[in-house]
Write a protein that binds this DNA or RNA. Structure first.
Lengths: 266, 266
DNA sequence: TAATCGCAGATTGTTGACAATCTACAACCC
DNA sequence: GGGTTGTAGATTGTCAACAATCTGCGATTA
C-alpha cells in the first residue's frame, strides 16, 4: 500500500509531464490503482471496498473514489449493492463457463486472422515467448508460467491489429482471472503446464503455416481445454476442503431477506 | 425531455416499489436515462453533455451525473476529455469495421449453439418475427424494420442462454448503433431490406434444421453482408454532401494544439 | 489590419458536510 | 433461553460550495 505517486516524477521530460496532468484525473488514477490491486490479488473476490478508507489511503476525497467504482462496476470487476457498498466480484462457475465459451470464439477468430496476416517478425516473437514458457515449465519456476501465458495470448490478439477485438478479449480475460484467483496457485500445478505449452506450439505452427482453419481450430480447442483444466483444478480444490466453511460467505444473517426482496424486484 | 419519473408510480404494488427504491440509486436512474437518450437519438455523436444542465434537467446534483458519466464512458457510449467535458462518442469507420468483425464471430457462435439447442417454441417465435419484418418491408412502413431487426438478433442471442455472450453482444451493438445513426435513416432504404430479410430466413432455416455449421456460416455472412451494406450506404451519404461541412466538427480552433499534446503524451 | 494578450463568464474537478440507511449489540419481553 | 425491539456507531447517497481550468471576446499593439 501507499505506492501511489503522490509526489510527481520531476525527472521526466516537462512536455510529457504536462500531457500527463492534462489527461489524468484523480478518478483515472484511483481507477487504475484499484484495478491493479484487484488483478494482482491484493484484493480478493468478496472483499468489501470501503469508500472512506480507500479515499484516505490514496489521499483523495470520496468523490473520485465513487466515480472509479462506477467505472470498475461497468467493467465487471466489482459489484455494487445499494446502501451496502461495493465488493470485488465473485464470478460464479456458470458465468466463468459462459465466458470461456465467448473467449473461445474470439480466439478462434484470432487464429484465423493471424494465419492470413502474420509477419515473420511476429512469428519470431511468438517463438521466443514459447521458449520462455518452456524454460518456466522445465525449470523450477512454474509460478512464472501464468503471467507468460497471459502475455502470450494477449500478444496473439494484439497481432490481429483489431483494437476492438483486443478490448473485448481483455475484458473477458480480466473477469476470468478473477474467477481463477483462488484455484489457480494450486490448480495449474497438477501437471497441465506441459500439455498447455504443447497446445501453444501447435497454435504457432498452424499460424505460421498459414492454415487459417487449423489455426482457428487449435486456438478454440486450446481455450476449451483450458476451461476443462480449470474445472478439474476447481473440483480438486472443492473436494479438498469439505464444506467450504472458510472465507467470506456473502449470504448470512438478514442478508437472506434482502436477497429475496432483490429477486422479487425483477 | 422531462420524461423522468420524478413522481413515483404509486399505482404499482408496494413490495415492488420498495424493491425498486432499494436497488435504484440516482446514479442508476441518470445512467439509464442518458443511455436511452443516446440510443434513441435525442443526443447525437459529438454532442456535449453539460453536467450542470443535465443535473438541473433531471433534478439531481452533479454528483450522480458524474458517476453516470464514468459508467457510460466505460461502456463506450461517451468519451471524456479532462477539463473539457464528456461527449457522445463518434465511432470512426475503422472502429466500426473492427466491431463488425468481432460481432460476426460472436453471431457465428450463436448460430452454432442454437442449431443444437433451440426449442420448437423458440423457432415459432423467430418465425413470427420474420413475418413481422416481412410486413414492415412489403408494407409502406420501412421505418419499423430497424428496431425489429435489432430485436430479432437480440432474441437469437438471448436464446443461447449464455448471459455473458448476450452482454458482450449488446455492448458491441450499442456502439454500432451509434455509428449507424447518421447514415441509417437514408442508407438502408436503398433496397437492402428485402435482401436482409432473406438472409434472416436462411438463418432460421439453418438453425431449425439443426445444421450447426450452416447456421454459424449463415449468421457470420449475414453480419458481414450488413457491414458491406453499411459501407455502401455510408459511401452514398458521403458523396451526397461533398465536403462534410455540416454538423459538429470536433477539431477546430486551438483544439489542434491540445490534440497534438495528447498524442505526444503516449 | 492582423495577431497577441488578458480578462470575465462558464464549466469541470475536487472537496467537505449533511441526510439516509445499514450493522451490530444491548435491553427487553415472552 | 430464544427472539424481538431499539439505539449508537459506521457507512453510503446526495448535495452545495470552492478551486482550477477552459472559452470567447474585447483591448492593445506592432
Amino acid at each position: 500500500m501507499s505506492t501511489m505517486p503522490s509526489a510527481s516524477p520531476i525527472g521526466a521530460s516537462p512536455s510529457s509531464t504536462i500531457a500527463l496532468l492534462q489527461s489524468q484525473s484523480l478518478t483515472t488514477l484511483v481507477r487504475r490503482e484499484l484495478e491493479r490491486m484487484i488483478l494482482e490479488g491484493e484484493l480478493s473476490p468478496g472483499d468489501k471496498l470501503n469508500e472512506a478508507a480507500l479515499a484516505a489511503q490514496l489521499s483523495v476525497s470520496r468523490g473520485p473514489v465513487r466515480e472509479a467504482f462506477r467505472a470498475l462496476q461497468e467493467s465487471g470487476l466489482v459489484q455494487t449493492e445499494k446502501n451496502r457498498g461495493v465488493f470485488v466480484r465473485e464470478i460464479p462457475m456458470q458465468e466463468a463457463d459462459e465466458t470461456y465459451a465467448v473467449r473461445a470464439a474470439l480466439e478462434q477468430l484470432v487464429g484465423q486472422m493471424l494465419a492470413v496476416s502474420i509477419s515473420p517478425a511476429q512469428i519470431k516473437e511468438l517463438r521466443q515467448m514459447l521458449e520462455r514458457m518452456e524454460r518456466a515449465v522445465s525449470g523450477r519456476s512454474p509460478d512464472n508460467y501464468h503471467p507468460l501465458n497471459l502475455q502470450f495470448h494477449d500478444l496473439l490478439v494484439q497481432f490481429t491489429g483489431n483494437d476492438k477485438l483486443l478490448a473485448t478479449y481483455r475484458r473477458l480475460v480480466n473477469e476470468l482471472n478473477l474467477y481463477r484467483r483462488d484455484t489457480l496457485a494450486q490448480g495449474s500445478k497438477v501437471g497441465g503446464l506441459t500439455v498447455s505449452n504443447g497446445e501453444h506450439r501447435r497454435i504457432v505452427q498452424a499460424i505460421a503455416s498459414g492454415n487459417a482453419e487449423e489455426a482457428g481450430r487449435s486456438m478454440y480447442e486450446h481455450v476449451m481445454a483450458s476451461r476443462a483444466r480449470m474445472h478439474k483444478a476447481k473440483g480438486v480444490a472443492e473436494t479438498a476442503l469439505p464444506d467450504r466453511e472458510k472465507g467470506h460467505d456473502p449470504v448470512k444473517g438478514q442478508d437472506k431477506r434482502r436477497v429475496a426482496m432483490r429477486e422479487a424486484a425483477l
